[in-house]
Design a protein around this nucleic acid. Structure first.
Lengths: 193, 193
DNA sequence: CAGTGGGCAGACAGGTCTGTCTGCTCGGGT
DNA sequence: ACCCGAGCAGACAGACCTGTCTGCCCACTG
């Protein structure tokens, strides 16, 4: 198994890439270790060397999702310009882009939480992710000069999570537009005019 | 197996009640048919007579959840008074109440969608539920005299879904307060002043 | 050239899953 | 007296799940 440039792709990466696809597309419990092993072309022993238990792979998967999604969120925010108030609105573009992709199945973290028990690794990782996002929003809200940064951040987080969930159930792209417009209204309202 | 009043509780009801508890608490795939059979004290053959396949039970479960949740939503709305604008805000009280209950694990429908494949019965039932709620919000928004009832309804739906999801991951009750306040702000803003 | 570590291939154990089937009991209606 | 439907109890099949273990191969390094 080699990459286009000829160097071998580490088994771990192949496993993780496959898991990324399958877990998101079908759900954590619906995808067996065997399926990931078969599709990534790895030996079972190799798999278990890198990930002693399935939950370890799930956590690594969430770690990867976190990296990708947070990256998209930040990129969309920065694309909106230097003003933090604009960024708070602009980040919703990442959401619209994500929902439009086909195979979109909602927020990987919320889905993961639905399939894991509170206290487990995957569940904790989900909570941590949501708090990171919230902290980031809080920071932006503060920089934007909101009167109540905490409340603005929370409101936007609710909106974001809602849109993330709805996007999977309601194909109508208007929902994302509404999310963005609503975010704009909330931001405007939260700033000392 | 008899009810307090001495009449036998139909096996079907026992199965459905047990499924309601277990499916919500642990997730669809985490709960085997065997567990439901054991806990509801029913024979396997009886179970399969009422629900030829597990998915049939899942759909019946979602039907039941729909009844309960929609009822709570409507009750909270009506408790806010006769003005549709107040009702649009008041319905968020149902959410706060739900999230505070312990064992709260988010929106049963979103969780179900996360565990089922698009096109399956459970998934379709989820989509239908979300559209019913949206239609109701649209109706209220119309009665309230919103300038763009569709947009207001959608924005509130996003907020509701977001709060429903976050409530399971963020124990902080302030989130629900924020949801309600934000709803109030959106409603106020949407009305021709 | 020998050793070593990473990976491949696949058998295997032990459990759980859904769904089928056979027998038995019991109460109510004819 | 009889039957029939509803339900209980539990064996069984066949698939699938996670996780372990044994063997083999091969490239690199000392």
């Amino acid at each position: 198994m080699t990459a286009p440039n000829g160097t071998p792709i580490a088994a771990r990466d192949r496993i993780l890439d496959t898991a990324f696809r399958l877990f998101y597309a079908r759900g954590l419990r619906a995808v067996g270790v065997d399926a990931i092993i078969a599709e990534s072309g790895v030996a079972k022993a190799t798999f278990y060397k890198h990930f002693p238990a399935k939950d370890d792979l799930v956590v690594a998967y969430l770690e990867k999702v976190d990296g990708v999604w947070t990256g998209q969120l930040h990129a969309a925010a920065e694309a909106a310009g230097p003003d933090p108030a604009d960024q708070l609105v602009g980040l919703f573009d990442a959401l619209a882009t994500a929902c439009r992709r086909d195979g979109y199945r909602g927020c990987a973290f919320i889905n993961a939480a639905a399939e894991s028990t509170p206290g487990s690794g995957p569940h904790e990782r989900t909570v941590a992710h949501k708090q990171q996002v919230l902290a980031w929003l809080r920071e932006l809200a503060g920089e934007a000069g909101a009167e109540q940064p905490e409340r603005l951040a929370r409101a936007l987080a609710l909106l974001l999570d809602g849109a993330l969930s709805s996007g999977a159930l309601d194909a109508d792209p208007e929902a994302m537009e509404v999310a963005r417009d609503t975010a704009r209204a909330l931001v405007r309202q939260a700033l000392p005019s």
